[in-house]
Simulated scan of single mutants.
Amino acid sequence: MSEGYPSLQNSISTPILIIGGGITGALIAYQLIENGRKVVLVDKRDVCNGSTAASTALLQYEIDIPLHKLIEIRGLECAVDSYINCEKSIYNLKKITDAIKSKSGFEFKKSIYFCSLKKDLKDLKLEYKTRKKFGFDVRWLDKYDLKEIGLNAFAAIESKSGAVVDPYRLAQDLLHYCKEKGVLIFDRTDIISIKKHVKKLQAFTNTKCTITADHVIHCTGYESVEMLSNTVVDLKSTFVTISESYPDLPNPFKDTIYWNTSDPYQYFRGTSDGRIIIGGGDEEFKDAERRDKLICDKEDYLLKQFGKYFPEIHFEPDYSWAGTFGETKDGLPYFGKLDSKKNEHYVLGFGGNGITFSVLGMHSIIPSLDGISHPDLEYYKFGR
């Protein structure tokens, strides 16, 4: 059940202001409150009703760009550390869900990264060898192994470190926990502008109030593009279809999530209430109205893809939706300050690993606030 929060009606002061009440803002608030910091969090909508409500919540250590290619783009240390730390983030998120007694349905799953085109086989083999070289627990599956699973594809990499969660419920549970610990939360409170005032920052709201803060943390995902350079992120529209509930979830989806080497890729997973979600068909984002007009055509496309890969499973669509996300050139997030002279910080988990990146961002937010060096503030800095 979602919890209601008031809009801000009076001007206030706080050491730290978080803008964004989705899963990222909730995780950052949790990290700060556990560290004994005083926090105010605001969201322009009802909390958790932005990208968090549209997320399909595949938790994977695999980044949108394969490890062997990421090494070429960002170097060995950054690439390998990013994969390792994303894997750790999945286990860290499980600890958090347990600590706050969240009923968000966190479940560990195997992850299968498969190719259905022969031209992708060479790269997939190289990716497998690269992951094995750097210690990841992976297994190679050929087409006969996949046929036994019920998947029609040439080959795949199986990883054990995948998971699923209900991000909306988790964000709600985190915010409730933070509220009980003293975080002040206001929704339907839009920050119109932020200005530097002496040594502090002043955020002006649509409710004609002012929030004076020592630090402001932006956790607004793709909506941050208005404040960022156009070269930082490209906006994409993605499409999702969910099935009606099965009396018994088909075996291939009971303990495994799937995604493929197509560009853009498709993904497939089961849910705790016995449904199957399929997603993909990404397009350049133009505007929400144009995006939503594509939903019917994209549903047909996704159903055809599912039928090709899982020919023995009947998929009866229940409903479909679309969402927007940001895609970076290296598939990695942005953390830290945009302007070193201003105490405005960003935790932007762009890409397909938004939730995993948000957990990763928890570790560098306090160093960012305190002006202390941290590897992630270097790996994921602006202007890299």
Rank of each mutant, 00 (worst) to 15 (best):
I185W: 06
F186I: 04
F186N: 02
F186V: 05
R188A: 10
T189V: 11
T189Q: 08
T189R: 09
D190W: 11
D190Q: 13
D190K: 10
D190H: 09
I191Q: 03
I192G: 03
S193V: 08
S193G: 07
I194D: 02
I194T: 13
K195H: 14
K195C: 10
H197F: 12
V198N: 14
V198G: 14
K199D: 11
K199S: 14
K199A: 13
K199F: 13
K199N: 12
K200P: 00
K200W: 10
L201K: 01
L201S: 01
L201F: 03
L201T: 03
Q202D: 15
Q202S: 15
A203S: 08
A203F: 07
A203L: 02
A203I: 06
T205R: 03
T205D: 03
N206F: 13
N206C: 08
T207S: 08
T207W: 11
T207C: 08
K208A: 15
K208T: 15
C209V: 06
C209Y: 05
T210I: 11
I211W: 02
I211E: 00
I211T: 04
T212W: 09
A213P: 02
A213I: 02
A213R: 00
A213L: 02
D214T: 10
H215L: 04
H215T: 09
H215G: 00
H215C: 05
V216S: 03
V216R: 01
I217P: 00
I217T: 05
I217E: 01
C219I: 09
T220E: 04
T220A: 05
G221P: 00
G221E: 02
G221V: 06
Y222P: 07
E223V: 13
E223N: 11
S224C: 07
V225E: 12
E226Y: 15
E226C: 13
M227R: 10
L228Y: 02
S229V: 05
S229C: 03
S229I: 06
N230D: 12
T231R: 14
V232H: 07
V232P: 04
V233W: 05
V233M: 03
D234H: 10
L235F: 13
L235E: 05
K236D: 08
K236I: 09
T238E: 10
F239L: 06
F239P: 02
F239D: 03
V240M: 05
V240R: 00
T241R: 08
I242W: 04
I242F: 04
S243C: 01
S245L: 08
S245R: 09
Y246M: 02
Y246C: 03
Y246N: 01
P247A: 02
P247M: 04
D248E: 09
L249S: 01
P250E: 00
N251V: 13
N251E: 12
N251K: 14
N251I: 14
P252T: 06
F253N: 01
D255N: 14
D255I: 14
D255H: 10
T256G: 06
T256L: 07
T256A: 12
T256H: 09
I257R: 01
I257M: 07
I257D: 03
Y258H: 02
W259K: 01
W259P: 00
N260R: 04
N260M: 05
N260V: 07
T261D: 09
T261I: 12
T261W: 13
S262I: 10
S262N: 15
P264K: 05
